[in-house]
Design a protein around this nucleic acid. Sequence first.
DNA 1: CAACATCTTGACCCGCAAGTCAGCTAAACT
DNA 2: AGTTTAGCTGACTTGCGGGTCAAGATGTTG
Lengths: 214, 214
Amino acid sequence: MTSIRERNQELILRAASEEFADKGFAATKTSDIAAKAGLPKPNVYYYFKSKENLYREVLESIIEPLLAASAPFNQPGRPAEVLKAYIRSKIRISRELPFASKVFASEIMHGAPHLSPEQTEQLNAQAKHNISCIQRWIDQGLMAKVDPHHLMFSIWAATQTYADFDWQISTVTGKGSLDDEDYEAAVRTITRLVIKGCDIDETVPSASEQVSNA
Amino acid sequence: MTSIRERNQELILRAASEEFADKGFAATKTSDIAAKAGLPKPNVYYYFKSKENLYREVLESIIEPLLAASAPFNQPGRPAEVLKAYIRSKIRISRELPFASKVFASEIMHGAPHLSPEQTEQLNAQAKHNISCIQRWIDQGLMAKVDPHHLMFSIWAATQTYADFDWQISTVTGKGSLDDEDYEAAVRTITRLVIKGCDIDETVPSASEQVSNA
DNA sequence: CAACATCTTGACCCGCAAGTCAGCTAAACT
DNA sequence: AGTTTAGCTGACTTGCGGGTCAAGATGTTG
């Protein structure tokens, strides 16, 4: 049916996110996007109104996954489980959506000039919610008094870095790209820092409590 | 004497680092740099050969401070002191050189296309040194077995984030800019995560051992 | 003050990349 | 087959921004 349209839009979007991630918005040429997508330049404009539009769609595509990563904070749960799940999700995004992730980070670095106020508000609200959630845990004595803002910034940064600074990571580790085990090690390390840093004792194993309600 | 030259170069460099930090290399217009410096555009070219040159000088300016931040790793010292000093230095750089710092991060994000091989190598060597230093501590049983690579990535990311994602931090905290106490809290939080995450016990107070050699 | 160097500036050039368009081809529908 | 819609493309326009220049202003030195 509209499979041509869908296929080409997808090709262009994919190419665009790679190019934008690599070079940034301004340094990216639409002709390069077209070339990477294997299409002539006017096709890009046939499917997307403008370079900026295309960029916004790339940005758009990462927002929902990012919000979804905060899901653990939106249900009741003990600190250890929530934080672990959050860290794991954030790392997964850095791994599975590295380009869009990087584009997003770059956008934030420059003051989010292309994000709509609604998007900004949505992300901001979620961040604030997560922080207040942590504050509640502290008040309830479930974890140590670690500044929730700075804790969140550290988690955000430590997980995001695997998308943003992939070049640095490749250079320092000497590996072209990280494998499953590397990402597991990343999750382990960050989780450890956070869990131990917050003095969260993990007496109860994770699986048991969810099945039975005793 | 050459005070005109020095003054104007300084003005231009300062303006340039702000502009490059704000918008990135490609999106920055030399005319905007000139305007921010309060000079006509040709002056920029009178003092600096090209936009790229100017950019490289901004980059250059942050490398030495960054290497200096790793100084604690270059002298013998116990893990707690070294890591604390490193974290504090990195945060200080993010605070005191926020623009150049951001420019550098952006450069790294895009694969360091403007860094000379020597600069890359120097930074890389220092990073590897720091990591092997941590590995040695682990081997000596001075800290827990935390993957040194990922530990360094986390520290780098968590400290760097205060320069790179200042907008996000302002938005989430609701503050226009962070004050002394905020940066202290940042240092405290990151230090805590690292020290506790690495199971480093801080039995010996820091001051005593350096003065007396008993 | 003369002559020399440094600095400043408005006006200009030029290349590059965003975006357009007219006309084409290939599907889809009847 | 014939008509309509969707998709494709080479060739073009246009504006913007990096970089230059030649002439003037302002210092500097003996």
